[in-house]
Design a protein around this nucleic acid. Sequence first.
DNA 1: TTGACAAACGATAATAATTATCGTTTACTA
DNA 2: TAGTAAACGATAATTATTATCGTTTGTCAA
Lengths: 144, 144
Amino acid sequence: MTIAEANEFRALCDRAGIAVTHQRQVIYQVLSGMHGHPSPEEVYGRVKVRIPAISLATVYKNIHVFIESGIFCTVSLHHGSLRVETNHSPHHHLVCTGCRSITDIAAGDLGLPVKAHKLRGGFLAQRYAVDVLGLCPECQKSVS
Amino acid sequence: MTIAEANEFRALCDRAGIAVTHQRQVIYQVLSGMHGHPSPEEVYGRVKVRIPAISLATVYKNIHVFIESGIFCTVSLHHGSLRVETNHSPHHHLVCTGCRSITDIAAGDLGLPVKAHKLRGGFLAQRYAVDVLGLCPECQKSVS
DNA sequence: TTGACAAACGATAATAATTATCGTTTACTA
DNA sequence: TAGTAAACGATAATTATTATCGTTTGTCAA
């Protein structure tokens, strides 16, 4: 890593109010160099090459730190466990990033296609699922 | 349950090619009577009132059977484990219901709001995450 | 610099969610 | 109504994640 990169990471940590550690920096660099949607286990595998003694728990902890600091996002903010959709009418979800609650909203006014159709690239789109991420009224109170 | 309801469920199972069992019917009825996004554990709790001897595994198995048959959906079709978003540019996801792969698409042409704003109901919308559910080119081959 | 203190680390136990196994029971078809 | 595959219940196993705890390491003020 260059001096510039190191300084950039230091500034990032300052802003987030977290300490600059070797492990944290390597996890950050590995994440930045990956594309797609890696799992903690995959990140661990790559970090281990550079820091063989690192613990999986450290990788998990730092990924969460990065997410809380807004440095990275998660792909899905839904509940971690299986949930069944009991609302059969077309609708989307308000997902609260504070309390992780999920509320339904009618699909009607979003104007997305309802029929299956092919996208450029050959993907057959069957259904659009929109998550509106934000804060529910309750969580807005606790933030302010 | 009424005779009509029983017949309706029987027809449903016929179409799905699955056997009609007492447990399956009660799980179906309980699911149909719940709103929101219940977890298997919650479904189990309610089913147990009517069939005290039922096993949690049976609830899991039947929820999966219902999902595979298209009788119910899952709230999220993403990987069950934590995934980190490494693509920092605004984009959405093509989620394949066959192989569960997630591919990025640029957000540009979806025309959804980018700025945070309040929705009726008081929810503060900060970001839209759109999943386009469907089949990737590979999985379209295996289906046909 | 250095010394105190909080933050972070590594190892690993614990927990939660889910799936697999397997012997028994039950529904479906001939 | 008998044979067979599917479904069931009990429970072990697995996977993903989090908590605990003793040790080490940054950070910040003196």
